[in-house]
Design a binder for these strands. Structure first.
Lengths: 200, 200
DNA sequence: TTGTTTACCGAACATTCGGTCAGTTGACAA
DNA sequence: TTGTCAACTGACCGAATGTTCGGTAAACAA
C-alpha cells in the first residue's frame, strides 16, 4: 500500500494544497470567471499545463475551495452548543462561531459568498448554503418566540440583516491588520444586539 | 439641431435604454465576467451583432450601469440634509436615503457592489465608491465625537458594519415581494441603532 | 411609391479560453 | 551511478470569446 509520504521523493515544488490556496486568492482578486488558467499559472510561477499535474481542472479547484468553507459552517450545525439552552444564547454562540469560521477560512468563505450558481458545482454549493441559512433562520425564530429578541421585527428579516452584517466582513477584513476574530465578534454582537445609539 | 424624438421613425425594437436594463439583469444573474455577448443576445431576443447597433461594447454597458448607481449615491453627498444638524440625525438620513437608492436602483447598485477592479472601468467605479465611503466614514466619526453613538466601538468599524448591513440587502431583496424601501429602512435603523435584544 | 431612418442578420475576424499529451528536468534512495 | 518518482515544459487542439462589416427588413414621412 502506498501511503502519502510527507517528505516525498522527486522534484519539490507545488502540491495540490499550495495550488489550491494560491488559486483561491487569485479567484478572490479577479473573480472566478475573471480568472484564466494563465492567470493562475502566472501566480504559481509555472506553466498552465503544470496545474493539471496537481488538480483535475479549474472547476474542481472551485469545488474544493467551496467545500472547505461549507464544511466549517456545518460543523456548527451539529455542535451540541447550538442545540440546548435559551435560543438567544445559542444564537449568540452561532454568530460568534460564524465570525470565527469566516475569519479562519477567510478566502474560502469569501469565494463561497460570491457564488451565483453558474455551474452544477456552484448550484450544489448554493444549496448547501441555503440549508445553513434555514438552520440559522429557525434559531432566530426560536429566539423571537422565547422573547429573547424584540417582537416588532420580522425574524426572517432579522436573519438576513444579521448574517448580511457578518458576511460583509469578507469585503474588508485583513487578518494581518485589525482586530482578532473574537474582538470582531464582540463588537459585532454589541452593535447588533444592543444597538449603535449611546445610552439606549 | 436634431432633438431626440420619443416616437421616432424606423423599425421598432430595442434602444440603448432597454438593452442596458436587460443586460444589467443578466450581469447580476451570471456575473459580468460570466456573461457572454451571446447570453445578452439571447436575453434580448436578437443576434449578438445587433447589440453593437445600440451600444459600443460590453464594457461600456458596464460603465453606464455603474455610473447610474454612483450618481445616485453622490446626489446624497451634496444634499443639504447631509450637511447640517446633529451628526446622528444626518447619519440616520444618509442610511435611510442609501436604502432608498439601493432599492430604487437595485440592479445597478447590485452590480456596483460586485465590482473588483478587473478593468479601468471597474477601477474608476471603485475609486468613486471609496470616495463615498470616506464621506460616510467622516459622518460616523462626527456622530461619535458628538456622543450620538456609543463610545466603546471604533467608528471606522461601525461604518463598515453599518454599510455592510445595508449593502447586504442586494443579496435577497425583491421589489415585488416584501417590504417597501421605507419600511425596510425603518427596520434596519431600529435594529442597527437600538439593537436586536428585547427590553434593552 | 420613394426615400429616410432605425433595427437587425449572418458570416467572418483575431484572440483567448480550458484542457491534452509526449517528453524533459531535478531531487532523492539504493 | 543508476533508477524512480514527482514536477514541469512546450506545442498543440477545438471551442468560445468580443467585435466588425456588408447587406437586409421594417416602420414612418413625403
Amino acid at each position: 500500500m502506498v501511503t502519502r509520504n510527507p517528505a516525498r521523493p522527486g522534484r519539490r515544488g507545488h502540491d495540490p494544497e499550495s495550488v489550491l490556496s494560491i488559486a483561491v486568492s487569485v479567484f478572490n482578486e479577479r473573480g472566478y470567471d475573471g480568472t484564466s488558467m494563465e492567470d493562475l499559472a502566472r501566480a504559481l510561477g509555472v506553466t498552465k499545463s503544470a496545474i493539471y499535474h496537481h488538480v483535475p481542472g479549474k472547476e474542481q479547484l472551485l469545488a474544493r475551495a467551496l467545500d472547505r468553507a461549507l464544511d466549517g459552517l456545518f460543523e456548527m450545525v451539529t455542535d451540541p452548543r447550538a442545540a440546548s439552552g435559551p435560543a438567544i444564547d445559542r444564537l449568540e454562540w452561532v454568530v460568534r462561531q460564524s465570525v470565527r469560521i469566516l475569519v479562519g477560512r477567510l478566502p474560502y468563505v469569501t469565494l463561497l459568498l460570491r457564488v451565483r450558481g453558474n455551474s452544477v458545482t456552484e448550484q450544489a454549493a448554493l444549496e448547501r448554503r441555503r440549508e445553513f441559512d434555514r438552520f440559522v433562520s429557525h434559531l432566530v425564530k426560536e429566539a423571537a418566540a422565547e422573547g429573547g429578541i424584540r417582537a416588532d421585527v420580522d425574524p426572517a428579516l432579522v436573519t438576513r440583516l444579521l448574517f448580511g452584517t457578518i458576511n460583509s466582513i469578507t469585503e474588508w477584513y485583513q487578518p494581518s491588520r485589525g482586530a482578532s476574530a473574537d474582538d470582531l465578534a464582540d463588537t459585532l454582537l454589541t452593535i447588533t444586539f444592543d444597538g449603535l445609539r449611546s445610552d439606549a
